[in-house]
Design a protein around this nucleic acid. Structure first.
Lengths: 301, 301
DNA sequence: AGTTGCAATCTAAAAATTAGATAGCAAGAA
DNA sequence: TTCTTGCTATCTAATTTTTAGATTGCAACT
């Protein structure tokens, strides 16, 4: 509010160093020399009378104070940047943090419509494994993101898009080898999943069963791997129906039970708080919320 | 998110010029020469390819684009500034926008308690005539403010503090000259007010009367002037009881009607949105909300 | 023992910012 | 009218800040 910032340029350089946690790489990224970056960091620390980084011969990492400063500086410069983008008519670029499955299965088929509806939009897609909401500086990673869960993330503006509705799927061969007629038949099957078994637990509970502790399970690296493993007959999986639509149509996968199982989880659009949204990001947000409202009008967004 | 800001220093100077709308004054305020400021503004405009100011021989004023940029830059630099304040342990200063009456009558008696409860807090008080919520860049004026009204201000986080309860007051001499027994007796009195007669209208309506269009009125410059005018026997006023407590006790003012009249207006604490709050500002906020909750526990904050 | 990746420091060069003087423009004062 | 005042832009030269490049030192690998 009152006094001015004297070492604003050093702060800008600090921002990059804090981002990449490495002086040499920051210098490369900024197209200046390593010595210059080093000089600025030291200057800033001297001016503030505070240590911003812990040094080791292996490199440097943010100190307590450095972390605090980095957050504010990142948001501040971000705000200035969007201001500049706005007035310089280069407001068309943005970054979206997407779940890989979501990007490849859902978005890719709709990208054409998006670019048609919002010409000039330049978006770059960054993958994350549902970690976007938990990054220390999400606004550095992307302008907004799709996150799966229950919607309780602080520091984000959360908009629920679709509830997660799952279907049990497996390969036709697996089904033949393990006939499944009732939910309890799954107890003899190999349950495939990513991360944890929360979804399977919900499924068993919804069907009046307990997930047996002796149940055979397999944890896969990511959803794509889980998908191909399921197709290859390693076991049964829970997938969102939109994610496996083409496999179901082509017959690579089958559903032992007809109807989908509604879970307590959902896909959310999340935007870091206290960050200026670029016009492009706003367009993307409006577009996806619009589609969501069309798909699930009952959501009451 | 992506490319860097090259002319950050020029932007900083632009921020000041946008603030004071005058190159010469900005230069003085920044302790640099007028030519230097002029150079930076021109450079920034050239870099962006956009006119930021409309020039006239009389001076300059922000253009459309300039206004947009100024807002973002102001918020951005503000965020960086609070970050710096935080790590440099000079986070104790803040600015509050107050109504003059509120500052002199209400806060001044409680300042001691505040400074005792939050040692090291340095606050400066800036007066406004209920215009804080309508300033183009309120965050430039103060970190937070007290605003009177109905609480419907966009771009602010609003916390209701106290409902406005008014009492009718006048000088003892005036009361003797104009005996007031029933509300309708006020029709023969001179009604003092600031700005508009909304409060008097509410009062008459609440008492089942209409404010006669022929009613004699007097509009005063500000509340302090209204107060002294009332004491000097110019007419009757509506005041918050906390504001005239000492005058009522000393007998300079009297209340023709015993009880206070609750209005639809209230005092609110308002904080500009999308702006980082300094720790000091947060302390002040917590303190005043705390007092408010003690005074009106039923508010349900 | 040698290589690699890393940051700090030194010196000189390059780039930027700055001051100071000057000019030009319009409005208000005399 | 002419004079003064308040304003910004522009020019040149000085000053300050930033930068590169070479060098050092440190630890972890190879």
């Amino acid at each position: 509010m009152s006094d001015e910032i004297r070492n604003i340029k050093s702060i800008q350089i600090f921002n990059k160093v804090a981002d990449v946690q490495n002086v040499t790489r920051a210098a490369k990224s900024l197209n200046i020399s390593q010595s210059s970056v080093s000089y600025h960091i030291k200057k800033l620390e001297a001016d503030l009378g505070v240590t911003l980084f812990r040094r080791s011969p292996a490199g440097l990492e943010l100190s307590e104070a450095g972390t605090v400063l980095a957050g504010h500086v990142s948001r501040g410069l971000g705000s200035i940047r969007t201001g500049l983008d706005l007035v310089a008519n280069r407001a068309g670029s943005m970054q979206v943090a997407l779940l890989p499955m979501f990007a490849s299965r859902w978005l890719s088929t709709r990208l054409g419509g998006l670019l048609e509806a919002r010409p000039g939009l330049q978006l770059s897609i960054k993958n994350h494994n549902n970690s976007y909401a938990h990054m220390p500086n999400p606004e550095r990673f992307a302008d907004l993101g799709i996150q799966w869960g229950r919607g309780n993330w602080a520091n984000f503006d959360v908009t629920k898009l679709w509830p997660e509705k799952l279907v049990v799927v497996c390969s036709p061969a697996y089904l033949k080898a393990h006939p499944i007629h009732a939910p309890s038949d799954l107890e003899g099957c190999n349950l495939l999943h990513v991360d944890d078994t929360r979804m399977w637990e919900e499924w068993f509970t919804a069907n009046g069963l307990d997930l047996p502790s002796s149940q055979s399970q397999m944890m896969l690296e990511d959803r794509h791997f889980q998908l191909s493993s399921t197709i290859n007959g390693l076991g049964v999986s829970l997938f969102a129906s939109w994610a496996v639509q083409s496999e179901l149509e082509s017959g690579q996968l089958v559903t032992p039970f007809a109807q989908a199982f509604p879970t307590s989880f959902a896909y959310h659009l999340i935007v870091p708080r206290n960050v200026d949204m670029s016009p492009a990001a706003q367009q993307f947000r409006d577009w996806i919320i619009d589609i969501s409202a069309q798909t699930y009008p009952s959501q009451g967004l």
